[in-house]
């Protein structure tokens, strides 16, 4: 999705994308892609639909996204001052941070002692879910459409009816000695 496809403020979308790309990074989608840093081959959380999932009201984060983005940019400004970085004024502050600095800031915000940890962990959780479970899409359809996250993790294709069944599932032989105290019902003694 191009940033300006969103019905929301394009700058807000850029910031959410930059956060999601910090959680599961991907390759740039087009020349001049500012939110996706391009540090990893293949699609990441952004290409997987993280912004779409975050904006889904069912998730619970959608209503708070404006304030999350505002706050994230604030943290990015403070971070830049503390680390003596000059930020490109043409993009939002978090987007202007280089990838390693985005990473360091997100690690700090999600750290065990950070007072806002819960909301940043929530944002990270949904970014991750967009990538490896495509929670905004029907799973079988996401696989058919080549969802980058499900394909990256190697999630198996369902059968023709959209249901998963594995006919071959077992090595089919005993591979360890049983515990000597196993009872007749198969439980520990």
């Amino acid at each position: 999705m191009r940033p300006n496809d969103s019905e929301h403020d394009p700058e807000r979308t850029l910031v959410l994308e930059a956060f999601a790309d910090t959680i599961i990074p991907g390759e740039k989608r087009f020349p001049g892609d500012r939110s996706v840093a391009g540090v990893s081959a293949g699609g990441g959380a952004v290409a997987a639909g993280a912004v779409e999932l975050l904006e889904n009201p069912a998730g619970g984060l959608a209503e708070g996204l404006d304030s999350l983005v505002f706050s994230l940019n604030d943290h990015a400004r403070e971070y830049a001052v503390a680390h003596d970085l000059e930020l490109d004024p043409t993009v939002p502050p978090f987007v202007a941070l280089p990838f390693d600095h985005r990473t360091a800031l997100v690690a700090d915000l999600t750290g065990p002692d950070h007072p806002e940890k819960q909301m940043w962990v929530g944002l990270a959780l949904f970014s991750n879910m967009a990538f490896d479970s495509a929670a905004h899409l029907r799973t079988s359809e996401a696989l058919t459409a080549g969802h980058p996250g499900l394909l990256t993790i190697g999630y198996e294709q369902p059968q023709a009816d959209g249901i998963w069944r594995f006919e071959s599932f077992s090595y089919g032989r005993q591979l360890a000695d049983l515990h000597p105290d196993t009872t007749a019902t198969g439980s520990p003694a």
């Binding site: 599932f169 077992s170 090595y171 089919g172 032989r173 005993q174 591979l175 360890a176 000695d177 049983l178 515990h179 000597p180 196993t182 198969g186």
Partner: peptide, 25 residues
């Protein structure tokens, strides 16, 4: 054992290799 999925089999084999026991639960 003949119906234990691959992941269970892998864990069992690793336990056996390490001198441990493992049970189908």
């Amino acid at each position: 054992w003949d119906k234990i999925p691959y992941a269970g089999g892998l864990f069992a084999a690793a336990c056996q290799h390490a001198g441990r026991t493992a049970n189908p639960a």
